[in-house]
């Protein structure tokens, strides 16, 4: 099982067990055997790239971990960081447009750089529900439709819509399915029969299991998949889709 959405580090508005070992233990305890790990400590940093060293180091020592570095394309040095990702074999890079402060409508040049580097681009639309953020640190969600529009303009780029709600993913299902390398993660898919309804909409091969641990409990993330879906479909979402996708970034 591949958990595509895992974080390590500190988060100001929520006390979390965020050391790498805590996080790895919590997601492997519910069955994850491969983890795409990103650094929370970079999210609020002026230069988030500095925090990537921690996940690169963990990936070197723990074969279950694949580093998923955070990249901020508004920083002049970001192309060097793309090259670092290539050099260390990080198959997937994450953008946080709401925290880095850029619009996806103006990101085509940067998207081409990720395409040329043959990395997978994960665009995180939400880290924390704006209703529960600290009042002095409110960060709005990224428009999920803008992520899909970016993917449409870059059909050769593998794009993952990260952190979208089930209703948003459902509404975007036809657009996601019209693109060859477009996926969505399940970390914020909630509600009765939500994963089932996404599968019914044809998305079984486009969903990636993500726990959003340690911000969210990994057992809950697993519950939405294993209770409602048959074993074959669950296996697609928990393993096969991510495995296929990661092959593009290896």
């Amino acid at each position: 099982m591949i958990d595509t959405c895992v974080w390590t580090g500190h988060w100001g508005s929520l006390a979390i067990p965020g050391t790498p070992s805590d996080v790895i233990d919590s997601v492997t305890a519910v069955g994850a055997t491969k983890i795409l790990l990103s650094p929370l400590n970079g999210v609020w940093a002026h230069n988030l790239h500095a925090a990537n060293a921690e996940v690169y180091a963990v990936a070197v020592t723990d074969e279950r971990v694949l580093a998923a570095p955070l990249l901020d394309p508004t920083l002049p040095s970001w192309t060097e960081q793309v090259q670092v990702a290539v050099d260390v074999g990080a198959p997937l890079v994450r953008w946080l447009p709401a925290y880095s402060g850029f619009a996806l409508e103006s990101a085509d040049g940067w998207a081409r750089i990720v395409t040329d580097a043959q990395r997978i681009l994960w665009v995180q639309t939400r880290l924390e529900d704006p209703r529960r953020q600290h009042p002095l640190g409110v960060v709005p969600d990224v428009d999920a439709a803008a992520v899909i529009d970016l993917a449409r303009r870059h059909p050769d780029l593998a794009v993952v819509l990260g952190g979208a709600t089930w209703k948003t993913v459902l509404d975007l299902a036809p657009a996601i399915l019209s693109l060859p390398y477009c996926y969505a993660d399940t970390s914020m898919v909630d509600g009765v029969d939500s994963a089932l309804r996404l599968v019914d909409a044809g998305l079984a091969t486009r969903l990636l299991y993500g726990s959003h641990a340690p911000l969210f409990m990994p057992l809950g993330a697993m519950a939405r998949i294993v209770f409602d879906l048959d074993d074959e479909t669950a296996h697609l979402i928990l393993h096969e889709n991510a495995n296929t996708l990661l092959d593009r970034g290896r």
Binding site: P218, L219, A221
Partner: peptide
């Protein structure tokens, strides 16, 4: 708070 939330996800908050 079903159906807004998933029975299993919320149950996991306690069981886990």
């Amino acid at each position: 708070d079903a159906p807004i939330r998933h029975f299993g996800v919320t149950l996991a908050k306690v069981v886990g």
